[in-house]
Design a protein around this nucleic acid. Structure first.
Length: 198
DNA sequence: CTACCGATTGACT
DNA sequence: GTCAATCGGTAGA
């Protein structure tokens, strides 16, 4: 069944959306191939007081999607990689949740081919790697993730894993607003990205 | 036009 | 732990 999370799920504080996204299933529909992965690591970027957020300095050509209604995708490039954000909190509020890692559960052979590795733990254990594995690029920037026709959306997990434990830390790789504890991951999950500066 | 830099990754000491 | 690769957007001459 195709059942994307509704806009109301995303239309909340990114801090809450980020933690609620852990354990949910991200689905990518490419032609007739379906890729799925459990979201195991995310980071929240706030609309106020967060200098690391791309919307902190206001709207520009690159971050327009951040200002769309909650539930849209914001894809941007970092070096030669793409990163995927899910827009939160209503229209014209530039907050989002960055998908940092997923645990592959469907379409793994396709992901292995895209990533050039057979090690499942390394297919999507980082924001850039995840985008390569799931074939996410700039063409997905600004799409609505709440319609059944979307080629990218998040849905409830089929396995009711309600006992997941959430760990928190500072975000990775940023130079401003470093002290905010806005990185969340599923504790002891082997598919999260490697720890670096924390 | 050039200079600079970042929400990264992979290779290496 | 350190470091370079060499993308795309932005600022400034």
């Amino acid at each position: 069944m195709i059942n994307p999370l509704p806009r109301s799920f995303y239309d909340r504080d990114p801090n809450l959306v980020a933690q609620d996204l852990l354990g949910k299933v991200l689905v990518r529909n490419i032609n007739k191939k379906i890729l799925k992965g459990v979201i195991v690591e995310v980071e929240a970027y706030l609309s106020l007081g967060d200098e690391a957020a791309h919307g902190f300095k206001g709207k520009n050509q690159r971050n327009q999607s951040l200002y769309k209604e909650a539930g849209h995708a914001y894809v941007h490039s970092m070096r030669h990689h793409f990163l995927l954000d899910l827009v939160t909190e209503g229209v014209n509020v530039p907050s989002s949740v960055l998908i940092r890692a997923v645990q592959p559960i469907d379409g793994i052979s396709v992901m292995k081919k895209s990533r050039g590795t057979d090690v499942v733990e390394n297919l999507a254990n980082g924001p850039g790697k995840f985008c390569v594995a799931f074939n996410i690029d700039k063409t997905l920037d600004g799409i609505d993730m709440t319609t059944p026709l979307s080629s990218l959306y998040v849905t409830e997990s089929e396995n009711l894993e309600k006992n997941i434990r959430i760990a928190t830390s500072k975000r990775i790789g940023i130079s401003r607003s470093q002290d905010m504890l806005l990185r969340f991951w599923i504790k002891e999950n082997p598919f999260v990205s490697r720890k670096r500066k924390i």
